[in-house]
Design a protein around this nucleic acid. Structure first.
Length: 585
RNA sequence: GCGGCCAUAGCUCAACUGGAUAGAGCGCCAGACUACGAAUCUGGAGGUUUGGGGUUCGACUCCCUAUGGCCGCGCCA
């Protein structure tokens, strides 16, 4: 029995054609198929209610007609009932569950089936984007972790993804930094930990310029020299960038991030004139108080709140470079979609940017990509205020990840004292980072994120440790039985799931497709986290209820198949979130 | 002042973007290791979804309003 990867999709189109068969006004009928509460079934179609309402018909009668018109290929695979005011419920038959599990037996099969969703599309994902000359701190975590997960899921869904690190490597701060570099640098510190020293110099330059107008003027001169191509200052600037990128990569390595391109603000320096020209020619931009700005008369706020794209002193700012960036991504990368991952405070900026881009591209007949500003809330301490260390400084990302690993190590040593020191170190490295990533990803990104160590490294509940533990237990079963986890031999003997726990687990497994779809549609990775958590929960229930390593070969084969698929889906899903997994912990 | 986001169990969060009896974890109570890893599982208690109106077959979700919190708003990004 061939079954599709995404069963909800298949039901949707089956209901569409049934609507034609049954004589409904098919164009006005949207099946609205979604996953259901298990009490009601696996999928439910809710579209009948809206249709019947609009057409003044009895919803139950319409539902009955639709069900009667479904092809045999569909009706054989499910138990179908009409319930309540006109819901159509579909419960998968055990044989259908088995067929799905058999067909999706490897990561490659999952991927190739999922890839139809965005086949042929190109997406640019813009995330992380720290400023050079500063260390990454806790505030940089969410963009990096969320952006990477979105990139992986878009890729899994068939898109060509270009990961772009739009670093802040240009701007007025470099005048002060170069001034401090020339007057106060510590060569020894520069050699041993350059990023730390640059950060110190930046703060020093900032403070000195604030305190002394003469310094401020000298810093301005340094900036002018840099911008006019002065060799010395350019060399310092390059040194700063190089050291910064190296430090960033240290963090990215821990988080499993590798960018395809790093096109920072400086890259767009020579591309902003075209932006000024084209927006002015299109009469979208106007002079206001000496600056070149864009107003949006149709917008309640942006009709008076300007989008400043060239400052009165003639310099560019991030509006101009972001406009140039949008054009570059559309023309050079042929992007079908652009995702920009930043915190919610920049919502106004990107709303103005997107409004401007839409009008500009329309005026020039440039192909417009889908534009998504993926926002997330602030990271706060447990008091609800911005997260700070005890002495009031920001928490460095490097230190945060080290702390997570140390806490994980203490836990592993406590729980698995029998493992060697080396093994415990390795496990702690994975669990520590995964806990940080997962704590961030598992929450709806739009709310503020309350940072709490105990919750993050916790072993219980919706945490990385819980998911990794489920994976480790499955590996353990295969190890005990002397089987390879990916070994497909013996699966042919697997029969349809029978016990309640087996069925619940199998029914959750096929919903993987729906979770992927949901994240694709919403760009919210927490839906995949929630799915994996629920899957791990179903597995744990199954594990407690039904022993796998039993003597009866038929029962054992049936349950081993479920274990193999749970492992496959868990490892695939965790991989899409950017987490590494373990075989023991 | 104008605008945006948010408010769900004691705490931290979900609720598939308008669907069926609002779900988890922590904490609390009561159980389950002579069974593949108890970092687990099974039950129980706990709710006027901030207050008040409205829209409709149906509202945590949409609209209005009040209160409280976070944030943005002319040359930082």
């Amino acid at each position: 029995m061939p079954v599709p990867f995404n069963l909800a999709d298949a039901l949707d189109s089956a209901l569409q054609s049934a609507a034609v068969q049954a004589g409904l006004e098919a164009a006005a009928f949207v099946p609205d198929v979604r996953t259901a509460d298990p009490r009601h079934g696996d999928y439910q179609a809710n579209g009948v209610l809206a249709y019947a309402k609009a057409h003044k018909q009895n919803p139950r009668a319409v539902a009955e007609k639709l069900v009667a018109a479904l092809p045999a290929g569909v009706t054989e695979g499910y138990v179908i009932t009409v319930a309540g005011p006109g819901f159509i419920n579909f419960t998968l038959q055990p044989a259908t569950l088995l067929a799905w599990l058999r067909m999706h037996d490897s990561k490659d099969h999952l991927r190739s089936n999922a890839a139809s969703a965005r086949h042929g599309q190109t997406w640019v994902v813009d995330y992380s984007a720290p400023n050079t000359a500063k260390q990454m701190h806790v505030g940089h975590l969410r963009s990096a972790v969320i952006g990477e997960a979105i990139s992986r899921i878009l890729e899994f869904s068939g898109a060509k993804v270009i990961r772009d690190n739009h670093i802040g490597d240009w701007g007025t701060q470099f005048g002060k930094l170069i001034w401090a570099y020339k007057h106060h640098r510590d060569e020894q510190a520069l050699a041993s930990d350059p990023i730390e020293e640059f950060e110190r110099l930046y703060q020093m330059g900032n403070a000195a310029a604030d305190a002394n107008p003469a310094v401020l003027e000298q810093a301005r001169q340094e900036l002018v020299r840099l911008q006019s191509g002065d060799a010395t200052n350019l060399a310092i600037w390059r040194q700063i960038n190089e050291a910064s990128l190296q430090a960033f990569q240290g963090i990215y390595d821990l988080l499993g991030i590798r960018f395809d391109v790093t096109l920072g603000e400086s890259f767009y320096n020579d591309k902003v004139d075209r932006v000024y020209r084209e927006l002015s020619d299109a009469r979208l931009a106007e002079e206001s108080q000496g600056a070149l700005v864009v107003f949006h008369p149709e917008h309640p706020r942006f009709k008076t709140q300007p989008f400043i794209m060239r400052k009165a002193d003639g310099a560019s700012n991030y509006a101009s470079t972001d406009l140039a960036t949008a054009l570059y991504r559309a023309l050079h990368f042929h992007a079908d979609g652009i995702v920009i991952v930043t915190d919610f405070r920049q919502a106004d900026h990107f709303e103005q940017l997107f409004l401007t881009v839409r009008k500009w591209f329309a005026a020039k007949s440039y192909r417009l990509p889908a534009l998504h500003h993926v926002t997330f809330g602030a990271v706060t301490g447990e008091d609800g205020k911005a997260l700070r260390t005890r002495d009031g400084g920001t928490i460095k990302l490097k230190e945060l990840l080290a702390e997570a690993e140390a806490r994980a190590y203490a836990l592993v040593s406590e729980r698995s004292a029998d493992l060697t020191e080396e093994e415990r170190r390795k496990i702690a490295a994975v669990v520590g980072v995964a806990s940080v990533q997962y704590a961030d990803l598992s929450q709806n990104r739009s709310s503020d994120y309350v940072f709490a160590w105990d919750k993050m490294i916790s072993l219980e509940g919706n945490t990385a440790a819980y998911l990794l533990y489920a994976v480790a237990r499955i590996h353990s079963i295969f190890r005990k039985l002397g089987l390879a986890a990916g070994d497909l031999a013996g699966e042919a003997a697997g029969t349809p799931p029978e016990t309640p726990a087996e069925q619940a687990l199998a029914r959750k497994l096929v919903k993987f497709a729906d979770a992927i779809r949901l994240v694709n549609d919403t760009l919210r990775p927490h839906f995949l986290c929630l799915y994996l958590y629920e899957l791990a929960g179903e597995f744990s229930g199954f594990y407690a209820a039904d022993k796998v390593a039993v003597d009866d070969p038929a029962v054992r084969a049936r349950r081993l198949l479920l274990c193999a698929r749970t492992l496959l889906v868990m490892e695939t899903g965790l991989g899409l979130l950017g987490l590494r997994t373990l075989t023991r912990m």
